[in-house]
Amino acid sequence: MVGTDGGALIGMAVALLVLFNARIAGISGIVGGLFGMQKGDMNWRVAFIAGLVAAPLVWQLFASLPAVRIDGSYAVMAIAGLVVGIGTRYGSGCTSGHGVCGLSRGSLRSIIATLAFMGTGLATVYVIRHVFNFWI
């Protein structure tokens, strides 16, 4: 199953970072932490992000990338990105930090956060597709 295989890889990345570096693989926290500009706390963040950004390039060395479709307009990307940036920082995590790492640790905070963003994620798609019935 491609889904569980991909998930297992994500779990392995999480394992590597916590067992060796004692860090949580939460993407919004790793990226957001760059803004703290703390000396000695920057390089590992940059390295992790570089690995993530390089992943499609490494993938292409061995196979062609699976097709990607983004239906939203540029304006939607800009608004959604802004909301995701602010929201994940106030909420102290995203799909990876709360949804994967937090649930793996059985953190109550992360269970609440995951229910919250899954809830509004489902509601937003429902409203856009089935109430207003349009593609944004």
């Binding site: 608004i79 959604a80 990105g81 802004l82 909301v83 995701v84 602010i86 929201g87 994940t88 920082r89 106030y90 909420g91 102290s92 995590g93 995203c94 799909t95 709360h98 609440i112 956060a113 995951t114 919250a116 963003f117 899954m118 809830g119 509004t120 994620g121 489902l122 509601a123 937003t124």
Partner: peptide
Amino acid sequence: GSLAFGIGW
């Protein structure tokens, strides 16, 4: 914060 994130997502 998490509710807002879900809207953007």
